[in-house]
Design a protein around this nucleic acid. Sequence first.
RNA 1: GCCCUCAUCGUCUAGCGGUCAGGACGGGACCCUUUCAAGGUCCAGACAGGGGUUCGACUCCCCUUGAGGGCACCA
Length: 493
Amino acid sequence: MTAPTPVRVRYAPSPTGDPHVGNIRMAIWSWLYARHTGGQFLVRIEDTDQTRLIPGAVERILESLNWLGLDWDEGPDIGGPYAPYFQSQRLERYREAADRLVAQGNAYPCFCSSEELDALRSRQQAEKRPTGYEGKCRTVPPEEAARRAASGEPHVIRFATPREGSTTAHDLLRGAITVENATLDDFVILKSDGFPTYHLAHPVDDFAMKITHVTRGEEWIPSLPRHVLLFDALGYPRPVFVHGPVILAPGGGKLSKRHGATSVLEYADAGYLPDALLNFLCITGWGHGDETVFSRERLIEIFDIADVSLAPATFDTEKLNWLNGVYLRQMPLRELSEAIARRLERELPGDVPRPLDRVLVEAVTPLIQERIQTLAEVTPLVDFFWTGSVETPPAGEFLTKKWAGQGEAAGAALDAVADAIEALDPFEAAPMEARLRALADEIGAKAGDLFTLVRLAVTGRKVSPPLFESMEIIGQEACAERLRSAATIVRAG
RNA sequence: GCCCUCAUCGUCUAGCGGUCAGGACGGGACCCUUUCAAGGUCCAGACAGGGGUUCGACUCCCCUUGAGGGCACCA
């Protein structure tokens, strides 16, 4: 889809915490749409609520975008032709717009206190009437209002919403949305601290920054009529509005901490890959034929924001895990190996010397590449390659199935394996397997039963990467040592 | 309570008046196999309900039901 003028979309988070995945998904879609059409993607910080600012939030927001590989053409850190990109630095513009609306008779100062407003709201609720400001200060004569405001009396500026008629706005995805003006109230556009509310800041900035498509979450639909009224009153052309669906938690309802990670950085921490999360988030709430795995390039090639679905989608962690596994398996050895090395250096016990030997990590990587879904599974799976000695499991672990009650036989078998291992030359996986299969035959055991003992002895666990390749990496001496020690324990059991 | 939005397998979706309603995750079976994975083959599984419109509705309209969102000097 090609737009007549270059598409300009923006991601406009407020710095009140880490961006939620639902929020980030909208940013991904917006970014893809900009890149798909050859337009621009910008970032604007909506820091108009001084009471909710969280230090460091801006940095974390930008870090989240960076990690996902979303780049911006204009933003708080790099500036741009419409700077500044912090709303807190654009206060004069909002003031100006508000003054103009008051002068035009589209807005008025309101001197009602929060206590008064709270009281009004409770009264309305008690009487089961719609809540909302009923326009008390709208009747204050303009001259009197101006005088009181000039004398320093605390006040806000409210928009004088038309009482009659209805307002129709258009959403690219949903078509016309019409609301009776009577259901709207005189909402605040400028707060008493001089900061604008979102309702005012949004039209002023999106007009000034030449935004062509306002992309945001569905939660904004109810206030869309107010925004449209403001665009009109200000004499700004209306942009295209696109309200994406929300993301639901598995059980239904909002996705929250209770359901696991909710921010991008948490997913990074949990061992997910940027491309996998990007693919997954994009895919939840949007689809394209029979395809499921999309590279970034492919998405840019085919993504059209007009194709996103309207219904709220449920966050499917199982699918994310599977997709992450797909990306892990696709990764070039060197790249995966480096990621695994960094993970291990972060998680291995402190007595393991850093940096890790990359040659060893590269030997281990192919053994686990197709066995993990996230990087978080790496360390518990392969730590025995680095921890000097494994803790041999108790005899009971060994003496199950074929070996139940056969402590002596199992011990003998382990010793026999140790003998065979020590005699091996070269000490490589293929000949090792051949030799141990023959040995199983000699002992009169099934290969699998023998290998289970060896696995337990050498890796310390019943599930491990491929046995012989692992043993080759661990080394001849260490393997023999672990086998003998296990033999002793098993006999005693 | 008032306003708004949405509705295809358990989940994410394709479909855009005529299809055996397709794919993916998850589930089941089998194959492969030294564990665990990965891989392969196959199976089960959906148009929320009721009215219209039409020669013909998953597709268009209305109602019901269900789900989600909003009703701040927060965004």
